[in-house]
Computed example of a mutant assay.
Amino acid sequence: MVMPKFLRIGLHQSNVSGYTSKAWCVRRVGSMIFLKWGAVEVDGAGKGRKVYWSRTPQEKTVRCGSAERAQDYAKSAIARRRSHRYEPLSGSITNRPRSAASSPELKQALATILIVDIVGSTAKAAKLGDARWTKVMGHYYAAVRKELKSSRGKEVTTTGDGVLATFKAPAAGINCATAIQRAVRTLGLEIRVGLHAGEYTISGGEMVGLAFHIGTRVAAKARAGEVLVSSAVKDLMKTPSTIRFRDHGSHQLKGVPERWRLYRVEG
């Protein structure tokens, strides 16, 4: 039996290539439901689009007791995904072929990590309606990616209405954050931004590490219109610099050891 597949788009990206997203699959066999979901990478556009699992997908089996209940379960599950901006996906989702030269060994890298998040997105979406909100989000992602490209940032993933990216230099990440702020204000959006610098591990093409979690927690401490950085980012800044900071105090970041001093980017 063919497994129906759905790709989370958040906006219409049928003519866009080279982004990360999520995929979800469901298959019914008699009274049983087989689910599979996970992060994916999208290459190409239109009929030439190819979707690869970024990492091993999660799987789950649901025993519904009867074929009728299983059918209702599948219909309900599909309806929920469609309401969360998933679109039907034709073709297969495969594991990205490994290069013969690729090494299975872990690789470590140091980067400045940027997390962008829209403030009040749920209320904004409800006010504008699905059609207008989808259009606004299309402009939002286009603006973010334009600034990332200008600043030589690397998009890692999208998280709902947020974006996670990395930079080789902290100043580039900060300048990109303020540029994104200015760009999205023309769309009537306010964002909060957090930046942290640290090591992460690349394993099988996946980026993992505590640094990403710290960056997310820093962003959560920011208010609308604020760009907050951790002390690790500030310490890496070359002096003199045109970027000015204001001490934002010492904070306990949820789930992160020790307290961290944060700084607000001024100007």
Rank of each mutant, 00 (worst) to 15 (best):
P257T: 08
S99K: 12
I93W: 07
V26G: 11
S17F: 09
C176F: 04
G48Q: 15
G198W: 01
T216Y: 09
I174G: 00
S203Q: 15
T61E: 14
F167Q: 04
E226Y: 02
P97G: 04
R28V: 08
T157Y: 04
G138Y: 02
S92H: 12
S14Q: 11
H139L: 11
R63M: 12
V16G: 00
L11Q: 15
M32L: 13
S203I: 12
G194T: 03
G225D: 03
L11E: 15
T242D: 14
A111H: 04
G162M: 08
P104Y: 03
G173N: 03
R80H: 12
M32Q: 12
Y200C: 09
K22C: 08
G129A: 10
G120K: 04
D43T: 11
V62W: 04
S203L: 08
R81N: 13
K146L: 07
G249R: 02
A125G: 05
T186E: 15
T112P: 05
H251D: 06
A165K: 02
R96M: 10
G204V: 07
L189S: 06
V193M: 07
V29L: 13
P57Q: 00
K75D: 13
R182I: 05
A172H: 13
A131F: 09
E41V: 12
A39E: 15
V265P: 01
Y52V: 09
V62R: 11
G215C: 00
G173W: 04
A77D: 14
L210Y: 02
G46F: 01
S31G: 03
G173S: 06
S14L: 07
